[in-house]
Design a binder for these strands. Structure first.
Length: 864
RNA sequence: GCGGGCGUGGCGGAACGGUAGACGCAACGGACUUAAAAUCCGUUGGGAGAAAUCCCGUGGGGGUUCGAGUCCCUCCGCCCGCACCA
């Protein structure tokens, strides 16, 4: 039959219109049905969608459509994480206004997402830069403040002395500002903090209950929170002449058992003591400037070569009379952790060891494997790090000699507490969340600074504090600060002239509660309690692993803060989390080093050449798609050429969703051919087996029916657990079997019935992945109603059941044969069969059978 | 530097601790065609053998187990995060 070629350009927009006009995906609360909330991390409106979006939103869409078909009341919303630096950069670089730029981008990207045929409830769309969204953020912030969850404290930022601007960590490149190239300095600013540390313990222990989160993400969060049990204690300090100072040096350690191995103390370059000593010490001032140039990122600080500066102070060892430890300012001690000061024990810490070697400090081992001769145990290049199960013992440690590490810790703690110089302390690595940003394109922080009344919240009736539109980017710094009038307000208390806060919120705040807002996006309050009670938590959250820590931890905290202030009735916003992999692509560059778009690279005689210049190209690595390396493929071009269904199919095929997927031309071509093949198969099946055919059970169709029902069973399970690539493999199998059945020129009525069933089931199975094609096929199969109005089919248990199984036969763990036996055959009968097989006897080569291990219906292993 | 992950044919990958390589791509052979494209059928981890069959194989090395791609240790390579990118 001459089937017309499937034309996605006609079909896809038509069905998109149908879904939209019939409001197929708009959802509302319905207590009579189970709810299912699918959410993908919302996009930043950067301009155009990229392949990462296509992958992320396709996965969410498949889940949404599948769950819908299974009878769930599905919520699947979309919005925009619309505040952020790129809008300001566009303003500075291209003279466009951040607001116009952002909303233009949203319009473009909304259209692009719609062309993907996503089953989204667009009536719930939100943009975080809209006052109707951020006003609630301001209100909640004020409530958090009243609830004691907000704090104002001084913290350090990267300062560009030329541009007179605060720099983000990514704007610091090799210690210099990205625009000015000037060495970065540090500045202390009073900033707002959300007290996430009030929930350290809770955020940690609650991880155990997030059973449907990837273990790796929970582990990363555990490590990030970093609970440790240690001691805070202080050393007496003396000056070079040996005079005792009034001041003591407080340190934090988890290895107080190694106190006898201490050979120095180190404080952070930002430590209060270092700041005070700087005045009379030019060398220290220079050292502090050098450390400041590293910026504030922990990565750059820890990567830097370990260096210290002798402060000329000495710490008296608490247990070794007359022993003095030199005190350094060191570039690797972080002010934000513990006390910003440590004692160094080089024998048992690699970093301390490197430091000690560099400055010629003693290395005294104090922990050694049991039975080691203390006199001979020495440390060379590697510190001795005790591991969980090691049998170790304290040495060179006076009264601790012979103690195990845990016992030594107890003893030191006991003694120090008795001496009054320290106490046991649980410490967390987690720091409070600094939310102040010295930028324009963010949510204004709703407070007023008054010279006489201090810092006051903006009265709730004055919310929202709206960002002014009339700002300029012609000079560096925060435009809100330069604005002629915006910041000048009267004090809400005394009514005298006062100043608005010109800092805006970290954009992580915007994304820390949007999931809740989607439940009732137009509510007058941040969240409508009834709607949130019905929809929350998110049943399936999907996004990149790059958000494994910050965004997810902040959201978990925010939910708790919202609970405390009465906005939400739950702690954990995301019941199940899935982290998808990136989209990667081959890179091409010219001999000049310039990157080349894949679209401009053409294969020629086994080489790659530039489509326009003909120059031979260098093929680089397969890397994450990025604008800078130009290895990007524009989704819009792909959808235009192949259709959304093909793009979606490719994103789901082959590669498991959690792994990185490589975009290849051959892969898309393959996906495109398969859409055409499905179209032909269904058209042929529709012609051969009319809607009147009924399913029969005769033997000549049982094979096809089994394939169909077993695949349906497998696909149902695989889609429930997000194993899209596996479900697609099963769909290929059904397509292959259906294709073979269609070869039959003289089909019996019962075969026709089976073909009909196969075709219909096939369409319903691929519908979540290729929704437009499925609708069109469904029409060809003779249905008036749409696939989106059709329930998910159910496999027939009789057709799934196996009556015969193939059991592998091993001899000493090596496969030697296989036997077909009835399913459920008991051990002894199977054993009797296998030991007498020729292949088994040959492999045994005369040895007696020692034992037989039988796993029923799977394997028999003869040990001989 | 610290924390986390990944590594299986030419390629993407499949495999409750139980027959490694399902399914797809590519390649090769064939059918159809004047021809090509498309489509359809077949072959395809490596090695030995006429065949039956045997040996080797899941990044390298070691271990646990009747049995390891899967669990443990270690090394190598790649990727992600590191608190002001989103």
């Amino acid at each position: 039959m001459p089937t017309e070629r499937y034309n996605h350009r006609d079909v896809e927009p038509r069905w998109q219109r149908f879904w939209s006009e019939n409001r197929c995906f708009e959802s509302r609360e319905d207590e009579s049905r189970p709810k299912y909330y699918v959410l993908e991390m919302f996009p930043y409106p950067s301009g155009r969608i990229h392949m990462g979006h296509v992958r992320n939103y396709t996965m969410g869409d498949v889940i949404a459509r599948f769950r819908r078909a299974c009878g769930y009341n599905v919520l699947h919303p979309m919005g925009w994480d619309a505040f952020g630096m790129p809008a300001e950069n566009a303003a500075i670089e291209r003279g466009v206004h951040p607001k116009g730029w952002t909303y233009d981008n949203i319009a473009t990207m909304r259209g692009q997402l719609q062309s993907m045929g996503l089953a989204l409830d667009w009536s719930r769309e939100i943009a975080t830069c809209d006052p109707s969204y951020y006003r609630h953020e301001q209100q909640m912030f004020l409530d958090f403040m009243a609830a004691g969850l907000v704090e104002r404290k001084v913290s350090t930022v990267n300062w560009d002395p030329v541009d007179q601007t605060v720099l983000a960590n990514e704007q610091v490149i090799d210690g210099r500002g990205w625009r000015s190239g000037a060495p970065v300095e540090k500045r202390d600013l009073a900033q707002w903090f959300l007290k996430i540390t009030a929930y350290s313990e809770e955020l940690l222990t609650a991880l155990d209950r997030l059973e449907r989160w990837p273990e790796k993400v929970r582990l990363m969060q555990r490590n990030w929170i970093g609970r440790s049990e240690g001691m805070r204690f202080s050393f007496a300090l003396e000056d070079p002449s040996g005079h005792l100072l009034d001041e003591r040096l407080t340190v934090y350690t988890t290895r107080h058992d190694t106190i006898f191995g201490a050979s120095f103390c180190a404080i952070s370059a930002d430590h209060d003591l270092a700041r005070r000593l700087e005045e009379g010490d030019a060398g220290l001032a220079a050292f502090r400037r050098e450390v400041a140039a590293l910026g504030t990122s922990e990565e750059s600080i820890e990567r830097a070569e370990k260096k210290g500066y002798l402060l000329g102070l000495y710490a008296r060892h608490p247990f070794r009379e007359g022993v003095k430890l030199p005190v350094y300012a060191a570039n690797f001690v972080l002010m934000g952790y513990g006390e910003g000061a440590i004692f160094g024990c080089p024998a048992h810490d690699q970093r301390d060891l490197e430091f000690a070697r560099k400055y010629g400090l003693p290395v005294i081992p104090v922990v050694a494997p049991k039975g080691t001769d203390a006199a001979k145990f020495a440390i060379s290049a590697e510190a001795f790090l005790e591991k969980e199960n090691d049998q170790t013992v304290l040495i060179n440690s006076d009264f601790l000699n012979g103690f195990g590490v845990p016992e030594a810790k107890v003893e030191i703690a006991r003694r120090m507490e008795k001496m009054g110089i320290g106490e046991r302390k649980v410490n967390f690595r987690l720091r409070d969340w600094g939310v102040s940003r010295q930028r324009y394109w963010g949510c204004p922080i709703p407070v007023v600074h008054c010279a006489s009344c201090g810092i006051l919240p903006v009265p709730k009736e004055d919310l929202p504090v709206v960002l002014p539109d009339d700002v300029t980017f012609d000079r560096p710094g925060n435009p809100l600060d330069h604005h002629p009038s915006w910041k000048h307000v009267n004090c809400p208390n005394c009514n005298k002239p006062a100043r608005r806060e010109t800092d805006t919120f970290d954009t992580f705040i915007d994304s820390s509660w949007y999931y809740a807002r989607f439940c009732s996006p137009k509510a007058a309050e941040p969240v409508d309690p009834a709607a949130a009670r019905y929809w929350m938590p998110v049943d399936q959250y999907i996004g990149g692993v790059e958000h494994a820590i910050l965004h997810l931890l902040y959201s978990r905290f925010f939910a708790r803060a919202m609970k405390k202030t009465g906005y939400l009735d739950m702690e954990e916003p995301f019941g199940s989390l899935f982290t998808q992999g990136m989209v990667v692509h081959e890179t091409f560059r010219m001999t000049s080093g310039e990157w080349v778009f894949p679209a401009d690279a053409v294969a020629k005689d086994g080489d790659w050449v530039h489509a326009k210049t003909g120059e031979t190209l260098i093929v680089g690595g397969i890397e994450k798609m990025s604008k800078s390396k130009r290895n990007v493929i524009d989704p819009e071009a792909i959808i235009e050429r192949y259709g959304a269904d093909t793009a979606r199919w490719f994103m789901l095929s082959d590669t498991p969703p959690e792994r990185d997927i490589e975009w290849t031309e051959a892969g898309v071509e393959g996906a495109w051919r398969f859409t055409q093949r499905l179209w032909r198969l269904v058209a042929d099946a529709a012609e051969m087996a009319s809607p009147g055919n009924r399913v029969a059970t005769a033997a000549d169709n049982i094979k096809l029916r089994r394939v169909v029902h077993r695949a349906l069973q497998a696909v149902t399970g695989d889609l429930s657990s997000l194993r899209f690539n596996r479900s697609i493999a099963r769909i290929y199998e059904v397509a292959n079997s259906l294709g073979s059945a269609l070869q039959e020129t003289n089909a019996s009525p019962s075969l026709k019935a089976a073909i009909r069933e196969a075709a219909e089931t096939l369409v319903l199975m691929f519908a979540p992945m290729m929704p437009h094609l499925a609708e069109e096929c469904w029409k060809v199969l003779g249905y008036d109603h749409a696939v989106v109005q059709t329930p998910w089919p159910k496999p027939d248990p009789e057709l799934i059941a196996e009556d015969e199984v193939t059991v592998a036969v091993q001899v000493n763990g090596k496969r030697r044969d296989e036997v077909k036996v009835p399913k459920g055959l008991d051990r002894s009968e199977l054993e009797a069969i296998v030991v007498n097989l020729d292949t088994v006897r040959r492999a045994l080569d005369g040895r007696p059978v020692k034992k037989v291990i039988v796993v029923p219906d799977r394997i028999a292993n003869i040990v001989g």
